[in-house]
């Protein structure tokens, strides 16, 4: 075997593993659901929450500070007495106009004191890449509940 060749590969592999390991520890976010958060009841930081915006009002202000408040529920969660478990969300940022009642959102941030403080908010557009079949109405936002 060519020792110079093999040792070069080994050194790079070791360095790379260390880099990936440290980057993962620094930036991995656990993916959680509303049900998991409410059942555990504990505070969790650095998480990604996939959830659905409820029909409660989306409160929004841009002055003096930017803030969006809404509540989310589990996408597949159980509904008891007409309501499933919900979590209030505070997002300090601009109101994206893709944020609407019934939309699925991906939030990144911390679950503290019973509410979710989101640093980032992404809205999923369920109908965007799934055109309807001919004759069907295009899926309206919020009506796939």
């Amino acid at each position: 075997m060519n020792t110079k060749f093999v040792s070069a590969i080994l050194v790079v592999a070791v360095v790379l593993t260390a880099m990936i390991y440290s980057a993962v520890t620094a930036s991995a976010k656990a993916v959680v659901t509303v049900d998991e958060l409410t059942i555990e009841g504990s505070e969790r930081t650095r998480i990604r929450l996939g959830a659905r915006v409820t029909d409660d009002e989306i409160v929004y202000q841009s002055r003096p500070t930017r803030e969006v408040r809404f509540t989310v529920k589990d996408i597949k969660g159980q509904v008891i007495n007409g309501r499933g478990k919900t979590i209030p969300v505070v997002y300090e940022g601009s109101m994206p106009d893709t944020l609407k009642k019934g939309r699925d959102v991906i939030l990144e941030g911390d679950y503290v004191g019973g509410s979710f403080v989101a640093q980032s908010l992404m809205t999923q557009c369920p109908s965007k890449y799934e055109p309807p079949m001919p004759g069907e109405e295009a899926k309206q936002v919020g009506d796939y509940d």
Binding site: L16, M19, S22, A23, A26, S27, A28, K29, V31, R48
Partner: peptide
């Protein structure tokens, strides 16, 4: 057993060097 994600900081931290 638990799903986790990495975002742009991960890619930048490893790939930029």
């Amino acid at each position: 057993g638990e799903k986790a994600v990495v975002g742009p900081p991960f890619f930048n931290q490893v790939n930029v060097p």
